[in-house]
Computed example of a mutant assay.
Amino acid sequence: MKILVPVKRVVDYNVKVRVKPDQSGVDLANVKMSMNPFCEIAVEEAIRLKEKGLAEEIIAVSIGPAQAQETIRTALAMGADRGVHVTTDATVEPLAVAKILKAVAEEEQPGLIILGKQAIDDDTNATGQMLAALLGWPQATFASKVEKDGDALNVTREIDGGLQTLNVALPAIVTTDLRLNEPRYASLPNIMKAKRKPIDAKTPEDYGVDITPRLEVLKVAEPPKRQAGVKVESVADLVAKLKNAGVL
């Protein structure tokens, strides 16, 4: 079985982002970029399935500028076998991403697609669901545990009421949550080996996908700064302030 793992290049989660002066977007100049944390979890889960003998090949796919190849190399260093880089400098919205991934899936014929439930840059949380709809495959989102069950998967997912276990027939789409696993660090020998692993270069046009944006960003603004707290003299004062605020 092949496993397809989409990975996204985003601003590193440790970086405090800044809004451009014209409020047209986030300033990415000289900002550290890395693999989306949820994508790292997806790569790790694919590797664990391969280590259990449940998969023969892991393919990492990234859609983005030339620098996104570094993100693919990171996945290869972790344990993926080869990569597909769909090159574009444009901002690609979730629906266009799903259409490109559908074309890649039809070409590669994977038995499973594992991807992060969302990216930390736009928090859209839509690509996995859109891809499942386009392919007509069953889906299990927000996975916190994945187990093989014959020709299907038992996926435990986190919901508002607690945990829910789904049995999904393969091929399927699984999106990963934070508690699924702890991604490994790539060792130096694996980083060197990753440089020799193949990465296929593609473009959205190769797959016949129009990535023209359907949405227009009007303004990007920082959230309002948190106001400083106040000290109270007694519990009675605290209760009074909470009542005045409508909390109690």
Rank of each mutant, 00 (worst) to 15 (best):
A169L: 11
T141L: 07
A169G: 14
A201T: 10
V220Y: 11
L131N: 07
E147W: 00
S144M: 14
D206F: 09
Q139M: 05
K241N: 06
P183D: 03
Q67E: 15
V86H: 11
Q129Y: 09
T124I: 04
R73K: 15
A172F: 11
L170R: 13
D237T: 00
D237W: 10
K219H: 11
E57R: 15
P223G: 07
Q129L: 06
T156C: 01
D12N: 13
A75D: 06
L180F: 04
A172R: 14
V174R: 10
D206E: 10
A169Y: 13
T203S: 11
R18S: 12
V247T: 09
C39E: 14
E107S: 12
M130T: 00
E106A: 08
K16E: 13
R179A: 07
M130R: 13
L180D: 01
E51A: 08
M130E: 03
I47N: 08
K225E: 14
I113Q: 04
L101M: 10
V11D: 06
A46V: 01
K225Y: 11
V217M: 04
K20R: 14
E222K: 15
S24G: 15
E205G: 02
V43S: 06
A77W: 10
N125S: 15
Q227N: 08
S234V: 00
I191L: 09
A42Y: 01
Q69G: 10
Q164N: 01
K102P: 00
D22V: 03
D149A: 13
E107I: 00
E93H: 02
K231N: 09
T176E: 07
A245K: 15
P198E: 08
K8P: 09
H85K: 14
I63T: 02
K32A: 12
V232G: 06
P65C: 05
K193Y: 01
I3M: 08
A80Q: 10
G111L: 04
Q69D: 15
L153P: 07
V11Q: 12
A98C: 01
A228E: 14
R226D: 11
E44N: 01
A126V: 01
Q69I: 07
K202V: 00
T87P: 00
P138I: 02
T124G: 07
L188W: 14
L170S: 09
A194I: 01
K243M: 04
V217A: 03
E44H: 01
E51L: 03
L134C: 06
T87W: 01
I3H: 13
A172M: 10
T127D: 03
L134D: 09
S34Q: 05
Q118N: 11
I191N: 06
T127G: 06
D177I: 00
G116Q: 12
K117R: 15
M192E: 05
N181L: 03
R226C: 03
V7I: 04
I72A: 10
I58T: 02
I114M: 08
N14T: 14
A201Y: 11
N30F: 13
T87N: 07
V220R: 14
K102Q: 14
L101W: 11
P171N: 03
G53K: 08
T74C: 03
E44C: 00
G208K: 05
A75Q: 07
T212I: 02
I191Q: 15
R157M: 03
I191A: 04
V43E: 04
